[in-house]
Design a protein around this nucleic acid. Structure first.
Lengths: 351, 351
DNA sequence: CTCAGCACAGAGAGCGCTCTCTTGTCTTCT
DNA sequence: AGAAGACAAGAGAGCGCTCTCTGTGCTGAG
């Protein structure tokens, strides 16, 4: 009866306490905890009981100090490159359900493995430096990076610092770093095939900013596929993936080619804007003009009519990012890898 | 020229290396880094140069080992209480923009202080245990908890374990724990005043699950305010904060009282459902019947017509949660505090 | 002239863990 | 029967940092 309680030295029990309670050495307890063989089953059992009796929980800091692993990774959302205005609430990025899907995919993969993501933002030089310092201090073993704009210097900084990292999309400049991405060209082809199949003949497109690789690929893929269908030239207006730029682009397209009967818009937000412009012009969708978006974001469902769009397997991609990162952490000399996912067509009412 | 490079012993420089480079002791370098006075300015300068020269970055694990602080906190999203189905991608919670606003508010407060949130989920007994173990291992100094359902055992578990924690809403059972919340009654009063002011006379309400304190408060606040306006009895149907329950409730309300001209719905999701039901019954909103929601979630904007609703200052509330948590970590014996925020009315088209 | 009193710097003891090295014991083969 | 091996458990050296304690050289009061 004198046992059962921890030494109640005020603080929580240590390996030493457990060892004493089990009548073995610290090393043996450590072996049991870390699942190393070569421990007599009877002793294993005794140790386990001692652990339960003392309520022992390993101290992660002490462990990290010697293993040089923390068991957590940084989930970095790298925003606008500008140094403009200090926004105390970077909620806009988080409010995007796309981010939620990424976070969900990452957590889904990491959690069963006992690792947890640390949420970080980086939109200024200062915050980028903070991310780097944070990683170098050993607060996290590596980073998963979701950039929202093309000229983000963080990927390069991570590479230069030799820190394990995985990107969400192919970086604009070639970099020895792993990333996951989606087959933008194949997705654009799905959109092209669908528009042609439903009988559209006078088709145009609204692209994303052409500095972004994804935008280039979607445009090129769409044009290539349309060429195969016998449409050698597809008019294009460049947008910036934003709602206002989508409005402007649709207005311009309509002015230049009033008899349009199909549009492929490079993301859902701009497609939503395009839909609104079409409504103002009293064009019926999809009867007069069919619209296909890209991303299958929540905007696609908020549209009237609901948007036919190209879906990324975002959760799977995020999980793969996490998988790649753990692999790189495990094996630092591992070569960078890219994993490219197939998109799919989601048919709703707009096309 | 023989200096400038770190000892290049393969690994990163330690305090010892810096001390050697500066010709002082480890303790002195530590003093400079941690900003303790009693260090000769000339030596301070020498140490700073040595730090820059060696590229020294403190090792957080070593620091945590002795200070017993990690400089990070857990951001726990505690979901459904049920043990049902293992969802590998808990993306639904994240996909809710409400969560994004919370995360944004927290990060906005923490980042300038150099602390970062670790994202965690807890919807099963197993994952709840994981959260507790994680905190006990000293991976994080405390937790900020956002529960999505009333009978979440995690708050009590945290209290029992003596871990610093702050909740997003008042717990259903009284618990010695700090929380932030919104004045639900005042919000409901805003809705009542608005409906009465726009001339509604036959008013009903759809409440949330009455096991949830917030639901009770919204209902009571609405009824009290209506009583002041001379409406002693307000019919109520209890919903469960979900879309289907909102549909059912609206149908029932309409069946019981066909001449309704105003409804207060206890959250936006159910209000959205109500709006859809009203459309099917060919009631015009707001001409025939006015609808006010609660939360100002993204659902409010996705509605046709856009929803008039009650807005929480979610970002401010989240920031306050973080502030409270840091205070509790700093001062473990601090008494629990509650901070209650004022909601506001957002007038759109539905009322 | 002596001795508090102070400002500053160094020595060194841990924090709790992992992991190599060593020792001890029991098989097994020649 | 003795040597070699296989295996189990302990001893102890750190990991990199913080922080108390100790030591040293001043200044100024008695």
């Amino acid at each position: 009866m004198s046992e059962g309680l921890p030494p109640s030295s005020g603080s929580s029990p240590t390996l030493e306490d457990v060892a004493r309670a089990a009548g073995v050495s610290r090393a043996t307890v450590s072996r049991v905890i870390n699942g190393i063989r070569n421990v007599d089953p009877a002793i294993q059992e005794a140790v386990r009981q001692a652990i339960a009796a003392t309520g022992y929980v390993p101290n992660q800091a002490a462990r990290s100090l010697v293993t040089r692993r923390t068991g957590s990774i940084a989930l970095v959302v790298s925003g606008a490159g500008g140094e403009t205005g200090e926004d105390p609430f970077p909620g806009q990025v988080f409010a995007d359900p796309f981010f939620g899907r990424v976070a969900g995919g990452i957590v889904g993969f990491l959690r069963p493995r006992g690792v947890h993501p640390i949420l970080m933002f980086a939109e200024t030089d200062e915050t980028r430096a903070q991310v780097l310092t944070y990683l170098r201090q050993g607060n996290a073993d590596g980073a998963v990076l979701v950039s929202t704009n093309a000229d983000d210097p963080l990927p390069r900084m991570l590479v230069d610092a030799g820190l394990p990292a995985v990107l969400f999309a192919r970086p604009p400049e070639p970099l020895p770093i792993s990333y996951v991405d989606v087959q933008h060209r194949a997705g654009a082809k799905l959109a092209a095939d669908h528009l042609v199949a439903r009988g559209c003949r006078r088709i145009a497109t609204i692209s994303g900013p052409l500095a972004v690789p994804a935008s280039q690929d979607r445009l090129a893929g769409f044009r290539d596929a349309m060429a195969v269908h016998g449409h050698p030239y597809i008019p294009c207006v460049e947008g910036r993936f934003t709602y206002p730029s989508g409005e402007a682009a649709m207005e311009r397209l309509l002015a230049e080619q009033p008899d349009l009967d199909g549009v492929f818009v490079a993301n859902d937000v701009m497609a939503q804007a395009a839909l609104m412009v079409l409504r103002h012009h009293d064009r019926r969708v999809p009867e007069d003009i069919a619209v296909v978006g890209f991303d299958d974001s929540s905007a696609a469902l908020a549209c009237r009519p609901p948007l036919t769009t190209i879906r990324h397997p975002v959760e799977d991609m995020a999980a793969e990012m996490a998988r790649l990162l753990l692999a790189h952490i495990e094996e630092p000399d591992r070569q960078p890898t890219s994993v490219i996912f197939e998109p799919s067509l989601v048919v709703r009412e707009s096309a």
